[in-house]
Nucleic acid binder design. Structure first.
Lengths: 167, 167
DNA sequence: CTGACTGCAAAACATTTGCAGCATA
DNA sequence: TATGCTGCAAATGTTTTGCAGTCAG
């Protein structure tokens, strides 16, 4: 399975004379095994856990190729470092990130997308990419989190040098 | 000038038994001297340029206090590190970032803000903060940048490990 | 005076890179 | 077989921290 993306990747490599090595396949598989937002190091740990021998450098190098080939996206979700997510061709989404459990919810709101274009036009700005995310408390965590606690949670997140984005 | 923010900061420090040192004042002044999006290191360089003796560690420690006091915002604008910007009470804005010249344009679109709330409601998500930015080519850089070049610019940015956000 | 602050240098982190040996097309 | 790949370890760049001396309230 995941033949479509695998083909894209394979062709991407072929076209520039690169090789589809076992390591590259392993990273690909790990990333496409389930739909998640993974950190580079998580991939290393998971693969090592499965007994595969691979180095951190190769993970990073492969992730760069995957992102470049367009089938994987790189987003800043935590405060530090990046998360990688598989992309479905032509689709696009932004993120809601829970400060409590770290859950990442994807959303797509066409009216926001179109207003973005309006804004760009207003400033004579040619948009090439955008990044939009909201942080807060997700539905699952809300029942056990009052608004007061939510603010405290934001504080905690800040103190712990985790989440918290400006505004 | 900048009495208002200076007072907020002073009170913020007082309330927690912290001290308003010359170094903290210097960082404050540098940040509020003009309205820009500055990197920690830029502040160091500027202050040193003015003959002030201050260490990088103190800059970072002071920036944390300023952000915490609410009068300064910390945003990810470049690919690496943060930028700091003074905030005006109650105001909020998001950013357009030029891949060519690095210029940062602030924008505020109430309809986007309100749609954000809609999205959150839809997912039962309690929003606490958000981060929204678009990358592309600004008005000043567009005349000398065709669309084809713009894409190339995005590529360059990627290769140079600069700009480029996913999507 | 005393607890808070500073500078320095070292540590921490995520990520990148140089290099010598290894393996895929 | 010839590039391109890999792992390793060292380098990077930003931000944080421990510590001993210094200073604001």
């Amino acid at each position: 399975m995941r033949t479509r993306e695998r083909d894209i990747f394979r062709k991407y490599l072929e076209r520039r004379g690169l090789k589809l090595t076992t390591e590259r396949q392993a990273v690909f598989d790990e990333l496409f095994a389930r739909h998640e937002h993974v950190e580079a190091d998580e991939i290393l740990v998971r693969l090592r856990g499965k007994g595969k021998k691979i180095s951190r450098a190769t993970i990073y190098r492969t992730l760069e190729l995957l992102v470049d080939s367009g089938i994987v996206g790189r987003v800043r979700i935590g405060e530090i470092g990046y998360r990688y997510e598989r992309l479905r061709a032509g689709e696009h989404h932004d993120h809601l990130i829970c400060n409590e459990c770290g859950r990442v919810i994807e959303f797509f709101e066409p009216r926001i997308e179109s207003l973005q274009d309006d804004v760009c036009e207003r400033y004579g700005f040619l948009p090439l990419s955008h990044s939009h995310q909201m942080r807060g408390i997700c539905r699952q965590c809300r029942p056990r989190t009052s608004v007061v606690e939510a603010v405290a949670s934001a504080e905690r997140a800040k103190a712990g040098r985790r989440p918290h984005l400006v505004h």
